[in-house]
Design a protein around this nucleic acid. Sequence first.
DNA 1: ATCCATACCTAGATGGTCTAGGTATGTGCG
DNA 2: CGCACATACCTAGACCATCTAGGTATGGAT
Lengths: 102, 102
Amino acid sequence: MDLRGHLELLVLAALARTGSAHGYALIGAMRDGSDGRFDLPEGTVYPALHRLERLGLVSSGWDESQARRRRVYVLTDAGHTALSAQRAEWRTFAAAVERFAL
Amino acid sequence: MDLRGHLELLVLAALARTGSAHGYALIGAMRDGSDGRFDLPEGTVYPALHRLERLGLVSSGWDESQARRRRVYVLTDAGHTALSAQRAEWRTFAAAVERFAL
DNA sequence: ATCCATACCTAGATGGTCTAGGTATGTGCG
DNA sequence: CGCACATACCTAGACCATCTAGGTATGGAT
């Protein structure tokens, strides 16, 4: 799919949209929320979530209340901050591309 | 600077803007045309130009008319086509990010 | 019973970008 | 003149995000 560094923004935004969600649901949310454009393989998303957790931007816990166990993620405060920063960064980046390359 | 896959679009667009230019001038054009936002190291741009030439999107020749020899690049027909395609791709990508993540 | 969707995971390949060097020529300045 | 600096080209290798390609296991439907 070639997200080229924008994956982090997408995952954080997906989590902000859903409030909290497990990995597989996030994959679906990104796919469905983008008309199939952001259809990421699990091998991309799971490691990204682990990285975000190492960075302290998300935290996770096992949800055992369902029949099938799931690792549920939520944004931390730092995650919300990072999301705002990445959104701002995207805007200036996109504006620059727009001005220069289009 | 972290252009993450958008470098090709930028270089092609820079060449389209200038008509034809040598590598060092393209670096300046990208830097100045973006308020310093696209300030790429030579080690990024020269290999990118070589790659684009291998792909047939640009062609080059030595300009010996000046005191200092320069390798001057121009877009090929395929390069113009590729630029249009990448602009279109950018637009749909940016629109999807905008809708989903902002 | 079997198959598919769900749900998680990781090792290793891939490949674009950057770091960090190198070479050489012209130009401005004291 | 000598020196610094900008110009102009180049490449090897590091880095690291993403993808490929596997693996495991459970639940629900037929």
